[in-house]
Design a protein around this nucleic acid. Structure first.
Lengths: 155, 155
DNA sequence: GCAAGTTAGTTGCACATGATACTAGTTAGG
DNA sequence: CCTAACTAGTATCATGTGCAACTAACTTGC
């Protein structure tokens, strides 16, 4: 039936990865959006600010893997809702330091358990060793893809 | 410093999954777009039509995990380039049967090796057993996410 | 055999995303 | 100093995407 040599969509890794990621991201995105009115980029911002304290937008861009425009807009939304505060950066007048406000901190404290619950629900029934393999390989894939982005792959 | 209990973005599975998927998809998408002028949805369509022969759009929607609008537009683009042909479905006047044209078939034959080369390059240096685990868990995650989409997850 | 409900596919719309261009502030070299 | 090159962040634009509404065709029940 199949007219090709060895390429089957269902077992093609980039396809599987994309489909799985879309399913999971869609699930999480809807949960955050419905319950807290947060987009995924906004949620990531809240997360890294909770973890690392005051950061500039470039630092956030480096830390999460998001476009600087995406970070800029997510920050604007959060500032408007008073979940984060921007203060002038003494050492550089162009950049601002972003930090969670008390409201932002408490929102994060509220969301974090839900986020962890989703992760637990997703990996329920999976072998912990296998999950470790999964996370490690995802990191490797990301790194390899980053490298290959520069080069030209030949068939 | 970190004000939360156990949630670290870098080890959070949905985040890792999303970042890895974006890196890989971006790489692949650029390759197909640059060399063949195909979007990812178009490429998926070519793939399943090469695998399964003539299909209607609903069948393609079920087969790949894409919105029916996405499939519709991908099909329009491919028809315009004469890579696929639509014939009337005898048994149902609403739907059309899509199939690769000779040009589409030869394009697929040209792309398939490149696609496989990308997969090989991505998993180079990884243990084959681990890659099997990866693919299996991606399937499980997708299925679990699909299930959870209906329910409400509690912290 | 025809009205009511369903399904295949398209179109319109609203939104998120990312590349590009721009502004304001900073650093380095002469 | 002061100009040229650079960087942080924003605004603008083009594109892709999915939802909802729509049309056309099919099915079912009476």
């Amino acid at each position: 039936m199949s007219a090709e040599g060895g390429l089957l969509l269902d077992s093609y890794l980039p396809y599987r990865l994309s489909v799985a990621s879309n399913a999971v991201s869609g699930l999480i995105a809807r949960a955050y959006e419905d319950r807290f009115g947060l987009s995924i980029p906004q949620w990531r911002l809240v997360c890294v600010l909770a973890e690392d304290g005051g950061l500039t937008q470039v630092q956030i861009v480096a830390r999460t893997v998001m476009d600087k425009v995406t970070v800029s807009r997510a920050a604007q939304g959060l500032v408007k809702r008073r979940l984060i505060a921007r203060s002038q950066n003494k050492s550089d007048g162009r950049s601002h330091v972003l930090a969670l406000s008390p409201a932002g901190r408490s929102l994060h404290a509220e969301i974090a358990p839900l986020a962890l619950a989703y992760e637990v629900a997703l990996i329920a029934g999976l072998d912990p060793g296998e999950v470790a393999v999964l996370k490690r390989l995802l990191g490797r894939l990301q790194a390899t893809a980053g490298q290959l982005a520069g080069e030209t792959v030949q068939p």
